[in-house]
């Protein structure tokens, strides 16, 4: 649906804006919920929790372990588009951007949620929310501009294993730097 040329221009921009807003909303929510965890738990325990989560998510991403992660396995209803060319795509993006309204195929999002729960500050939460939305927007924008026939999705299906493995390695390296700088 998002690959349709109809989505170009203003609707695509408002969709991406919604993705960023949704990312900020969920990051701030994790910051607030995490304040109950960060206060009683000492730093080494929090770092240990992130390490355990990282190992579990990595093994799951590599297919070694199989376990379900909580996700709302539904599509955002198309009824949101009745709101018009700006508000409709914005709400669609907002609901997708929070990650709690629809499918969430990568474990890295959950790992980021754990990091935010245990280590975030207001500045890092907003930065993470904006970056999460931009990451999702980059993929949507790429799919829209790749060609007019939905070829990006085909290309992604061929390359997804390589891309997700490279992203996993990059993520784990950056996470190691983060934990070492906080410890």
């Amino acid at each position: 649906m998002l690959s349709s040329p109809v989505w170009r221009g203003s609707p695509a921009f408002s969709f991406c804006l919604g993705l960023v807003a949704g990312g900020v909303v969920i990051a701030v929510a994790l910051l607030l919920v995490g304040s109950l965890l960060r206060a009683p738990l000492p730093l080494p325990v929090r770092a240990g929790c992130v390490l355990v989560a990282a190992v579990l998510v990595t093994l799951r991403e590599l297919g070694v372990l199989r376990f379900p992660l909580p996700e709302n396995q539904r599509l955002v209803p198309e009824s949101v588009f009745r709101l018009g060319r700006f508000a409709g795509p914005f709400q669609f993006g907002l609901e997708m951007g929070t990650g709690v309204r629809t499918y969430l195929p990568s474990g890295l999002a959950y790992l980021t949620a754990v990091v935010l729960l245990l280590f975030s500050t207001p500045v890092t939460a907003v930065a993470a929310g904006v970056a999460f939305g931009l990451g999702r927007s980059l993929m949507t924008t790429s799919a829209l501009h790749f060609d007019d026939a939905g070829g990006w999705n085909l290309e992604w299906s061929y390359r997804s294993t390589v891309v997700t493995r490279v992203l996993l390695v990059t993520y784990l390296a950056a996470l190691a730097v983060l934990i070492s700088s906080l410890s």
Binding site: L108, T124, A127, G135, L167
Partner: peptide, 23 residues
Amino acid sequence: LLPVAGLVAGLALTAGFATSGST
């Protein structure tokens, strides 16, 4: 604060790109 915020943003950017999957 800013380097840490940049690091967390990098993590989130990577997670966001990986999360979208096929659109």
